Amino acid sequence: MQDRVLYSSFENSKEKDMTFEQVFERILRFMRLNPNGNYKLIIGTDSQVHYDYTSFITGIVIQCEGKGVWACLQKNKIPRKITNLHQKISYETSFSEAVFAMFTQERKDAMYEIVLPYVERGASFTIEGHIDIGSGPRNKTRVFINEMIARIQSMGAEPKIKPEAFVASSYANRYTK
């Protein structure tokens, strides 16, 4: 059975109903403010099971080390409770993959081109995928680590798990309630 996903636009505390194109323009604008910075594009998703649906929040963060961030999120909903842990983690990773796919090579190149003239002076740009799973012995999600890491790597991003996966486990998590 295929789930019907209720997708939404992107938003943050200052703007609602942004298209991905608007999100991308905000990211470029943020990067142009300090083109010699150390940038990380980070994408991560968290979920919360509610009474009759499961909400998924995907965070997009562009971080300039020591200079701040610009961030937004996308709220998605599946109109049923997802109680199977593997399925829930897999959906989280799928929503992150869908956003990663919006960052086409052309868009990534535009981001690289902002910092490229400053690389000799230490500027950088990396891409990370934050996965809301942990490797601790008491963490039930640890059995899915290799699978989810491989999926994020296939998107061209460096995977991070808890405690380093703050976009999924902190930023996105804050909005799943």
Rank of each mutant, 00 (worst) to 15 (best):
L6D: 07
Y7V: 01
Y7A: 03
S9K: 09
F10C: 00
E11Q: 03
E11D: 02
N12W: 04
S13R: 09
K14Q: 11
K14D: 11
E15Q: 12
K16R: 12
K16N: 13
K16W: 04
D17R: 09
M18D: 00
T19E: 03
F20Y: 02
F20W: 01
F20V: 01
E21Q: 06
Q22W: 03
Q22K: 05
Q22A: 07
V23E: 02
V23P: 01
V23W: 02
V23Y: 01
V23F: 01
F24Y: 09
F24E: 09
F24A: 02
E25I: 10
E25Y: 06
R26K: 15
R26E: 13
R26G: 11
R26F: 11
R26W: 08
R26P: 02
R26N: 14
I27P: 01
I27L: 12
L28Y: 02
L28P: 00
R29N: 09
R29S: 12
R29K: 08
F30K: 07
M31W: 07
M31F: 10
M31I: 12
M31C: 01
M31Y: 13
R32E: 05
L33W: 06
N34W: 14
N36L: 01
N36Y: 09
N36C: 05
G37V: 11
G37Q: 15
N38T: 15
Y39G: 05
Y39P: 05
Y39A: 13
Y39E: 04
K40T: 14
K40V: 15
L41S: 12
L41D: 14
I42N: 07
I42K: 06
I43Y: 15
I43E: 14
I43H: 14
G44D: 14
G44C: 12
G44A: 02
T45L: 08
T45I: 07
D46P: 01
D46F: 10
D46K: 06
S47G: 13
S47F: 13
S47L: 06
